[in-house]
């Protein structure tokens, strides 16, 4: 594991023995254990419908679990809190009645004009603060949502396929924005995706969730610090991972 961004002390997010059932009683997943070290980026990879979004909602304490507990920095939590910010793929996360600056400052009780500008710049929306969400493209909206979650000064970002609906060019740019933010803000990130490439580009560790809701052992990103598609080993690493988890193309 790359030690560039991992800090000592208890894990930023730890989930012990967690079980969550469908309304019918069938378990989505049961007795899982998950630990994410402070400052690391962990990607939860898996096919759609396997329960990884539910796991993320449980990590945010938005869904209740039948068994188990969630610990943030070693302390048990049972209700949502601003330190764990959740970002979805949903097109309607921003508030349409507020402009982008107002949306971004929504979590801040007493806003100062400067703080919105800094966040807008960080996500590359410097000139768009006065626009309304209906005037933004999908990528711009996700940038704004990212900026809004940063305004709450979180410790953990929980991302559920945040770039899933975007085309690849925009996606690539947003990956860079996310990594940039991670470096500057020393955040812990848990990202859910079904895209192996995305996992290899972003993650320190990768965990695979299969369609029956079981988790694999965490795997350190084989690309080390050279996580980009220009790395000659990228294609090989992708193929290896696809093979291991049965995620063949076509």
């Amino acid at each position: 594991m790359s030690n560039r961004s991992v800090y000592p002390g208890p894990a930023a997010l730890e989930m012990k023995d967690i079980t969550r059932r469908w309304p019918g009683g069938e378990p989505v997943f049961s007795n899982l254990y998950l630990s994410i070290p402070r400052g690391s980026i962990c990607c939860l990879l898996g096919p759609s419908g396997c329960g990884k979004s539910t796991l993320l909602r449980c990590a945010a304490s938005l869904d209740t679990m039948e068994t188990g507990e969630t610990l943030v920095s070693g302390e048990a939590v049972s209700t949502p809190s601003p330190e764990r910010q959740l970002i979805l793929q949903d097109d309607r996360q921003l508030f349409p009645w507020l402009n982008i600056s107002e949306n971004i400052l929504f979590p801040v009780r007493r806003s100062t004009a400067g703080s919105a500008e800094g966040l807008l710049e960080m996500v590359g929306l410097a000139d768009s603060g006065s626009l309304y969400p209906s005037q933004l493209s999908g990528g711009m909206k996700q940038r704004a949502v990212l900026a809004r979650s940063l305004a709450a000064e979180p410790e953990i970002l929980l991302l559920d396929e945040p770039f899933g609906a975007l085309d690849s060019e925009i996606r690539k740019r947003l990956h860079r924005v996310l990594l940039d933010i991670h470096r500057k803000r020393k955040l812990t990130i848990l990202l859910v995706t079904h895209d192996v490439n995305e996992a290899l580009i972003l993650a320190d560790t990768i965990i695979y969730m299969d369609s029956s809701g079981k988790l694999s052992q965490p795997e350190v990103n084989p690309l080390g610090d050279e996580r980009n598609m220009e790395n000659p080993q990228f294609f090989q690493a992708t193929m290896k991972m696809r093979k291991r988890y049965g995620l063949l193309i076509g």
Binding site: P80, Q85, L86, R92, Q93
Partner: peptide, 13 residues
């Protein structure tokens, strides 16, 4: 209301 909005209200307590 969009579920993301009400969820966000819970996150912000």
């Amino acid at each position: 209301l969009a579920p993301a909005w009400t969820g966000y209200a819970r996150i912000l307590k």
